[in-house]
Nucleic acid binder design. Structure first.
Lengths: 151, 151, 151, 151
DNA sequence: GTGGTCTAGACCACG
DNA sequence: GTGGTCTAGACCACA
């Protein structure tokens, strides 16, 4: 499960993590019954405080997306509601589209051209895919913690 | 001066406003000497608290981008430093690119395809341009010349 | 709003606080629209850490019982669901009855007689009523903080 | 030896078990020399994890209430100190009274009347007695006398 | 090993 | 003034 956090971003770290895990659950990358990384592992992997991850998991649990089992771990729940997660997925996508649009808007204000934006999009898609692929092959849990790069 | 705020967004309202004004200044939509809307007008227009706008203007003033003249209003300053705003513009663009990339990443996690994203980009660009044009015809926001009245 | 916390108890402080606030909301002591004490005030009044209260409020907000408004305070929400809070009240009472019964069970194991238990009940009821009354007359916010008594 | 655990309760399972065994010891339901059920039996009977019961027995042993004899089982010890268990009994009762009072307090917050509470108390006492009696007829849980076998 | 609670203190954002 | 996020570290409970 690949998670990417943007340290300088205006949106709080916890929210970035939460939204990405939620995306994984809703889009099926994480299936019901799958276990999430333990609170501590995810915290060290992402280089954030344990409590930050705890709050993320608690909120996802309150939403009914995951379940925390004392002493066992945290697991993805099957979707409850009638229409299940389809509604939620749609909601999340709409929200995402609004944010996307806002970023583009700001990009144009900064003088970026349509061509530049398209190039940026292509690159971003390629990068993301590379990340996701490399992860699929990933050796289990040998990631460096708290490298000082990229902050 | 068109400003668009995304209510449900994770990035705080004040930051959204600040970044868009900064973008306008750096990219030349707002020229040195131009006046910003009054704190109250902008607050009303955007539906946010007056203090929020006050703090935005204060920070922009602290950055040296604008100047608040007591009793007159807030005005865009000519760029100070040697390379002036070019450095700042570049910084802002880099930041923007990181945010763009993060949004695309999340979009892909939510299952959006490259095609969908490209379509979204095209629409967003068109929307933004439409907004900017419609605004160009607006009343030119009453730019007072620096009168020596009052204090 | 009277809240009583038992420091040596096995049930965590945050849970004690949460259950009492929930009881106040469900039974009508706290009406929709009423404001809860601010996070910091309640924390100092009870002599607990601010974060503890924050977590309590967050969980009540996740339950849909209250709403936290940034910069304004925390407020009781009108009950949502169809049957409203009646179901929840009933649930809470059942839970309470089970706990009551468990305590009585343990009391009897410790050799308490029916008479002693009845006396204890009478006293407890009287104490609680006294607390609730004295609070009704209470001078607003002049309570001592962190007295070292009663731990 | 009747033990009743309340699954949804806020106080941890292990503590519930420990307190009830302690109550049985202090009040004389369990006499010095009596054997406790084996760790596995009790765990199965209560439907909890074996380790949970192990830790309970270890703590009771650390308190000096019971003794774990390797390969034989766990046995109630005669009371050590001068005043022995009288002090401990008194302590436990005080703690119990505080918990009782807290539950009553919460019951009143939930809108229960004095009459309802008294009814509840009567029922709880009756239930407990029924449980204890039915158990008295049980098979007497195989009390081995301290054989000098093994070590 | 897992999650859960609590503390203390810092800094940010909104009204 | 209000709530919100983050850190660091301690200790407890469950499997």
């Amino acid at each position: 499960m690949h998670i990417r956090i943007e340290r300088g971003s205006s949106s709080p770290i916890s929210r970035q993590i939460m939204e990405q895990i939620r995306a994984h659950c809703l889009s099926g990358t994480l299936q019901p019954g799958d276990s999430l990384p333990s609170v501590r592992k995810l915290a060290t992997r992402l280089g954030v405080n344990v409590n930050t991850v705890v709050r993320v998991y608690e909120r996802l649990a309150a939403e009914g997306l995951v379940e925390m089992r004392h002493g066992e771990g945290t697991f993805v729940l099957p979707q409850s509601g009638v229409s299940g997660n389809r509604e939620q997925l749609a909601e999340q996508r709409e929200q995402l589209e609004r944010e996307f649009s806002a970023v583009v808007h700001r990009g144009i204000l900064l003088g970026l051209t349509a061509t530049e934006l398209r190039k940026l999009l292509t690159n971003s898609i390629a990068d993301t895919r590379a990340n996701l692929k490399s992860e699929a092959v990933e050796q289990p849990e040998s990631r460096p913690v708290k490298t000082e790069s990229g902050r």
